[in-house]
Write a protein that binds this DNA or RNA. Sequence first.
DNA 1: CACCGACTTGCACGCGCGTGCAACAATAAT
DNA 2: ATTATTGTTGCACGCGCGTGCAAGTCGGTG
Lengths: 336, 336
Amino acid sequence: MAESEDNTDSVTADDVAAAAGVSRWTVARAFKKDASISRQSRERVIAAAEALGYAPDLMASSLASDRSNLIALITNDFNNPHKLVLLERLTRILWSRGWGTLLVHMSDSEDASAALLAASQRRVDAAVVIGTRFDDKMLETALGARRLKKLVIFARYSQNPNTLAIACDDEIAMRQIADHLLERGYHRPVFLAGPDTQSAKLHRKSTFIEYWRDRTGTIVPSINTSAYDFGPAIERVTALLQDRDAASRPDVLVCENDIIAIGAMDAIRYRMGLRVPQDIAVTGFDDIPLSSSPAYQLTTYRQPITAMAERLLDVLEGKLTGDVALPGQFIARLTT
Amino acid sequence: MAESEDNTDSVTADDVAAAAGVSRWTVARAFKKDASISRQSRERVIAAAEALGYAPDLMASSLASDRSNLIALITNDFNNPHKLVLLERLTRILWSRGWGTLLVHMSDSEDASAALLAASQRRVDAAVVIGTRFDDKMLETALGARRLKKLVIFARYSQNPNTLAIACDDEIAMRQIADHLLERGYHRPVFLAGPDTQSAKLHRKSTFIEYWRDRTGTIVPSINTSAYDFGPAIERVTALLQDRDAASRPDVLVCENDIIAIGAMDAIRYRMGLRVPQDIAVTGFDDIPLSSSPAYQLTTYRQPITAMAERLLDVLEGKLTGDVALPGQFIARLTT
DNA sequence: CACCGACTTGCACGCGCGTGCAACAATAAT
DNA sequence: ATTATTGTTGCACGCGCGTGCAAGTCGGTG
């Protein structure tokens, strides 16, 4: 144990090299995974480093190597609790594999280039867009304005060719939900989607509508909320159900995600005074923590976040270069 | 407009200098706020920079200047939706003022030093701890193991002298809640707190209990959940109310925060079949988005997050060096 | 016309580490 | 014992920019 606890100034590889009696480059090798270095040298260096409290400076390392080991996590939609789950899982897995995560807020297209610019100024190795409300134009602009090494779209599809999407397989998911509803005898669904952006690439709505038509021959009507939040969902569903009797009402609301489904349930219960699922059933998507609470018990579909994060690692390490859609898990609770 | 759109390799200050016919240092000055540079030089440089698509490399800048303009946001408790609100507000305000935010997960004390180490390896200018479950020992260890320039505790108190806390003023808040309850005629409260860590420095519980004793002469019992999450709160409250008749029940549950309050409400309603507030009233703390939903309509207290974030900026800019406690806003809804 | 202050610009050096190659030591093959 | 092979180590140079100082410019005054 070294007594130099007064090292307010940081200790560099040179200090460790001097202490261990080797060159600075040998010190660097000791900290590099597959470096060509003898075991005893490495041990001596590590011991010296520990005594001095040395840890490689990642910032200097980045500058020299042109790899920052930093990932920008770009998000806009902070109202959806599911984002918290995604952020948590991603940061934990990325850090555990040596990647740092830079959190970036990007509220609208105006911000977009600023956010990407800021990220690139930090030399991030990749930017991961987590959010449903980025349209492709925005991404294109962002990509054109500032070169990023990689742009990954997480938990959402994208048709931009310069982009790589890692998402839950919405088609499998929505078919499973549809099968479940058909099995339970529902026959008049309405699809409740989020904002109708130019190119929202969640295939949930179209898949559900097409599959339902194939199986029943009927066309499912759909409506949109103005935001991925429960407030607008409440308003929209209230407007939908207002002045309709039991015969003309939908018997199930298929929602694009859980937070909207929860708004729908609140509207059904507290605005209309109806029951879920007896009067109207509801399904969601994401399986946010609240969905399992006794108040909601929402039937939903869980995205395979961990598996998706693993694929993200593959992308970052260059082992994967194509889009990915992974199956998740259907979760039947009490709202259907 | 330059036609060099093929600049896969990044454009540096030297390139801009050449294009503008000045030296590299003049380019740097053009991008520095209060630098000594003539207006025409600056304009020429900015024009050249724009044409070339140049933006200063923050990583290299950090290395040279020993200021990274990076803040580590350290969190452990991702179950509480309030964290999302805090993260969103902080990142937005920090980025708008030129600070980048590094998101770090720190689940237990084992992680603590690893997280702080990782942060220091990135040369963060400060680490901001956002979370209620970090005990002071953990912080002390972390501080000792790796020197950080600044350690700020956000939305929580701390008595560690090497630390700076920015929080909502719990004393004012809890007195206001108590006054409200007394005014409404409640007289048998129970305080529902989170996990009883060694040194949880939320003064909410002690303040409430002391103030209630001062005003009524009675001692408020308190119970703990095993985590800041609604699931454990449901279990704990169910256990509390089980086998008690209306006379021996509390008439109000004062909860340390909203997510626990929501669990309490779920237990009261769905486990016990009782009504809020007719049978038992509930109060929370934080005013998370869900608290305003028709399903809960929770009476709570909103933390002054924006003001707290502004103070954080003061701290980062060295204008503030002492602890801060700011008053928030009491919000009466329908659960009392 | 010389001179002084205020403003503006250029530059040597360093931040801490990576890369690629050359030199060297330790072992195996002939 | 000599050479080929593998393993290990040292080093010059550069990553892109900031700091502090010295040199340069300009306009105005006596």
